[in-house]
Amino acid sequence: MTLTLTVPPGAKVRVRITNENGETTEIEVEPGETVTITLPAGSTVRVEVEVVDPDGRKRTETFTLKP
């Protein structure tokens, strides 16, 4: 399973991925970048995406991906 994120110009994104064992991976994606994350097959993962807009506003979306 893959997750692809494209960050709009001016925004910053931090992604936290937590697996079933509670292990967390965190990455930051710079403005204008596209990143593809390969998620472990057969695992349920929690993905938290934090977006910081150019004006400093933050918003966070959290979702769970199941196999």
Rank of each mutant, 00 (worst) to 15 (best):
T2W: 15
T2G: 06
L5G: 06
T6N: 10
V7Y: 15
V7E: 14
P8K: 10
P8N: 11
P8C: 15
P8H: 14
P9Y: 05
G10I: 03
G10H: 05
A11C: 04
K12V: 06
V13L: 01
V13P: 05
V13G: 03
R14D: 11
R14H: 06
R16F: 04
I17Y: 14
I17W: 12
N19P: 14
E20F: 05
N21D: 10
N21A: 08
G22C: 14
E23Q: 10
E23G: 09
T25G: 04
E26L: 04
I27W: 11
I27M: 11
I27R: 11
E28A: 09
V29F: 11
E30I: 12
E30T: 10
P31M: 10
G32Y: 13
E33H: 10
T34G: 09
T34H: 10
T34I: 12
T34V: 13
V35H: 14
T36F: 13
T36Y: 13
I37D: 08
I37C: 10
I37T: 11
I37E: 14
I37P: 03
T38I: 06
L39Q: 04
P40H: 13
P40W: 14
S43P: 06
T44I: 09
V45P: 01
V45D: 02
V45K: 02
R46F: 08
R46K: 08
R46W: 04
V47S: 00
E48I: 04
V49I: 12
E50Y: 01
E50M: 02
E50H: 02
E50T: 12
E50K: 01
V51L: 02
V52Y: 02
V52R: 04
V52H: 02
D53I: 00
P54S: 06
D55L: 02
D55H: 02
G56Y: 00
R57C: 10
R57M: 02
K58H: 02
R59P: 00
R59A: 01
R59F: 11
T60F: 09
T60D: 00
E61I: 15
E61T: 15
F63W: 04
F63V: 15
T64I: 14
P67Y: 15
P67N: 14
